[in-house]
Measured scan of single mutants.
Amino acid sequence: VLKALERTRQLDIPDEKTMPVLMKLLEEAGGNWSYIKLDNYTALVDAIYSVED
């Protein structure tokens, strides 16, 4: 979780936006981090930006 938060902080995305999206992605992935961690957490960042749209 810390590495995911560090990555999104680099992009000026607050933890308050990151955590709900991260928890949803983890739930959808059955707790499997490998998809979320791919390409420096690209799936997480993309999911956060899609929620903002």
Rank of each mutant, 00 (worst) to 15 (best):
residue 49 Y to V: 09
residue 31 G to F: 11
residue 27 E to C: 12
residue 27 E to Y: 11
residue 29 A to E: 08
residue 4 A to E: 05
residue 15 D to P: 04
residue 49 Y to I: 10
residue 31 G to C: 09
residue 24 K to G: 06
residue 39 D to I: 03
residue 20 P to I: 11
residue 10 Q to K: 10
residue 22 L to A: 02
residue 28 E to Y: 09
residue 35 Y to H: 11
residue 42 T to Q: 15
residue 24 K to P: 00
residue 40 N to A: 06
residue 34 S to N: 13
residue 35 Y to D: 09
residue 53 D to S: 14
residue 26 L to S: 00
residue 47 A to T: 06
residue 24 K to F: 07
residue 17 K to C: 10
residue 9 R to W: 04
residue 47 A to G: 05
residue 13 I to C: 04
residue 52 E to S: 13
residue 29 A to C: 14
residue 19 M to K: 05
residue 32 N to R: 08
residue 16 E to C: 14
residue 14 P to L: 06
residue 34 S to R: 10
residue 12 D to N: 15
residue 28 E to R: 10
residue 39 D to L: 07
residue 14 P to N: 04
residue 3 K to G: 13
residue 31 G to K: 05
residue 44 L to I: 04
residue 23 M to P: 00
residue 47 A to W: 04
residue 48 I to A: 03
residue 14 P to A: 08
residue 37 K to I: 15
residue 42 T to R: 15
residue 29 A to Q: 13
residue 6 E to Q: 12
residue 43 A to S: 08
residue 48 I to E: 00
residue 22 L to M: 04
residue 3 K to E: 15
residue 52 E to M: 14
residue 32 N to F: 06
residue 25 L to Y: 02
residue 52 E to L: 13
residue 31 G to L: 06
residue 1 V to H: 07
residue 16 E to Y: 13
residue 10 Q to A: 13
residue 20 P to W: 11
residue 53 D to K: 13
residue 16 E to G: 08
residue 21 V to H: 05
residue 4 A to Y: 05
residue 35 Y to E: 10
residue 15 D to S: 04
residue 23 M to N: 07
residue 42 T to G: 12
residue 16 E to S: 12
residue 33 W to C: 01
residue 51 V to P: 07
residue 53 D to E: 14
residue 28 E to T: 09
residue 29 A to L: 12
residue 9 R to A: 04
residue 15 D to R: 03
residue 6 E to T: 09
residue 13 I to Q: 02
residue 5 L to A: 02
residue 24 K to E: 04
residue 24 K to R: 15
residue 48 I to L: 09
residue 42 T to V: 11
residue 43 A to D: 02
residue 47 A to F: 06
residue 30 G to T: 05
residue 44 L to C: 03
residue 18 T to S: 12
residue 50 S to A: 15
residue 48 I to R: 01
residue 36 I to C: 02
residue 16 E to H: 13
residue 24 K to H: 08
residue 46 D to A: 14
residue 8 T to G: 02
residue 14 P to T: 06
residue 12 D to W: 08
residue 1 V to N: 04
residue 5 L to Q: 03
residue 7 R to L: 08
residue 44 L to N: 01
residue 30 G to R: 10
residue 53 D to G: 14
residue 41 Y to M: 03
residue 19 M to A: 02
residue 6 E to L: 10
residue 22 L to V: 03
residue 9 R to G: 04
residue 32 N to W: 05
residue 53 D to I: 13
residue 4 A to K: 03
residue 43 A to C: 07
residue 9 R to Y: 04
residue 46 D to T: 14
residue 35 Y to T: 14
residue 35 Y to P: 08
residue 35 Y to Q: 12
residue 52 E to G: 12
residue 7 R to N: 03
residue 8 T to H: 03
residue 7 R to C: 09
residue 9 R to T: 05
residue 27 E to F: 10
residue 4 A to G: 03
residue 42 T to H: 15
residue 34 S to I: 08
residue 27 E to Q: 12
residue 38 L to I: 11
residue 24 K to W: 09
residue 1 V to A: 06
residue 11 L to H: 06
residue 21 V to E: 02
residue 19 M to Y: 10
residue 25 L to N: 00
residue 37 K to N: 10
residue 46 D to E: 14
residue 15 D to I: 04
residue 35 Y to K: 12
residue 36 I to R: 00
residue 42 T to D: 08
residue 14 P to K: 07
residue 44 L to R: 00
residue 6 E to K: 08
residue 19 M to S: 03
residue 18 T to E: 02
residue 20 P to N: 08
residue 2 L to A: 15
residue 21 V to Y: 05
residue 23 M to R: 09
residue 36 I to H: 00
residue 34 S to M: 12
residue 42 T to M: 13
residue 3 K to A: 15
residue 47 A to C: 06
residue 13 I to N: 02
residue 37 K to Y: 11
residue 23 M to A: 07
residue 11 L to V: 03
residue 24 K to V: 06
residue 39 D to G: 10
residue 30 G to W: 06
residue 25 L to K: 02
residue 43 A to V: 11
residue 45 V to M: 07
residue 9 R to D: 02
residue 53 D to Q: 14
residue 48 I to F: 04
residue 47 A to M: 09
residue 23 M to Q: 08
residue 21 V to A: 07
residue 38 L to A: 15
residue 19 M to D: 00
residue 40 N to R: 07
residue 44 L to H: 01
residue 41 Y to F: 10
residue 41 Y to A: 00
residue 46 D to M: 14
residue 2 L to D: 13
residue 44 L to Q: 01
residue 17 K to R: 12
residue 27 E to T: 10
residue 28 E to G: 08
residue 6 E to D: 07
residue 13 I to A: 02
residue 6 E to P: 00
residue 34 S to A: 14
residue 28 E to M: 13
residue 36 I to G: 01
residue 43 A to K: 12
residue 5 L to P: 01
residue 49 Y to G: 08
residue 28 E to N: 09
residue 33 W to F: 06
residue 17 K to D: 07
residue 9 R to C: 06
residue 53 D to T: 14
residue 42 T to N: 13
